[in-house]
Design a protein around this nucleic acid. Structure first.
Lengths: 172, 172
DNA sequence: CATTCCGCTTGCATTTTGCAATTGGTTGCA
DNA sequence: TGCAACCAATTGCAAAATGCAAGCGGAATG
């Protein structure tokens, strides 16, 4: 192991990658929120990340091999960030983290419905989602027949259903 | 959500608990290494945690409900730390983190054999391990018949086998 | 041609971390 | 009884990370 690493333990090395308050938040927004641009990540983040921290983490995630950056052909100033295979395979970790948080922490209903769906879908749903991300970010051929609702669409629909139901309940 | 939380998203809330470089390391050493005392955690940690950080994190993990502390009846100065159910259900997250790290990060063979075994065993092995931890830390009745090798023993045996094989290879 | 938007960068205050030494007390052994 | 070793921390201090607000040059938009 290199001198930069505290130990060769896989859990420790994973923590050296994610052991901060922002890296996984950024990846979550890219994976589940479909965000690809700096501004989307900056303004869309529920948690309010600062621009200097976002810039630093994007750079770090690129150096670590979790993200790549490319010019947006439609806009010379825009950069498009893409997930690598390394980042896409974080889906099971995200699912487990969400499932655990849903049980033990004070989550809100509308923000945890996605975690619930992902938990119920289990590994088959995670695999489908990862295939969709490979199509979206790596240009891999889609594996699901066209017309099938994507996992992200399903998660989004469930989220909006909860929001609508809660809004209705408020009116009553 | 309370004002202390950045958002009610389960992944974010989980990160607020584990989004640092030490909390999961401590829990890893308790779960997989069977460590229960301050000194064991301090000296046994491969990564070399400082005593002030360890003290701070143990306190924090207790406040969060992941650990409890009790007097050691055999030694007035010793404290015994125990995992709560909340901490025991981290086993699947640990397993996924280990599995991911094993694939993508520069792990050493002897330190990743446990992650490999845990991955291959899948949820049934995780469940058995969690039952053993409930027995050890919460006093729950054991579910496996007496005489069955524990998961921790299996993991330890596999680790030592790799170490022995590598030592032999060095001699040749 | 002014405004907005683009991905950052800068300066600066606050918080967290890491290291080494030390604390007050307990235990085990001679 | 005396004393070294051990116990779970705590203290002081330097260094690093974080967070906030403002600003940058350039490009797109109206």
């Amino acid at each position: 192991m290199s001198a930069e690493h505290r130990s060769g333990c896989p859990i420790n090395l994973s923590l050296e990658v994610f052991g901060d308050r922002w890296s996984l938040i950024i990846l979550r927004d890219m994976i589940f929120g479909g965000r690809r641009h700096f501004r989307e990540l900056l303004n869309g983040s529920l948690e309010g990340i600062a621009s200097n921290i976002l810039a630093d983490r994007l750079k770090r995630l690129m150096e670590l091999g979790l993200l790549t950056k490319a010019d947006d052909p439609s806009h010379k100033q825009k950069a498009i960030y893409s997930l690598t295979e390394m980042a896409i395979t974080l889906v099971p970790i995200m699912a487990q983290l969400g499932a655990w948080g849903r049980v033990w922490l004070p989550v809100t209903e509308e923000l945890s419905i996605r975690a619930e769906l992902l938990e119920k879908g289990g590994p088959p749903l995670w695999d489908q989602f990862m295939d969709e991300l490979r199509h979206e970010h790596l240009g891999a051929p889609p594996k699901t027949p066209p017309g099938t609702p994507t996992v992200r669409q399903q998660l989004r629909a469930a989220y909006e259903e909860v929001v609508a139901r809660k809004a209705e309940a408020t009116v009553d």
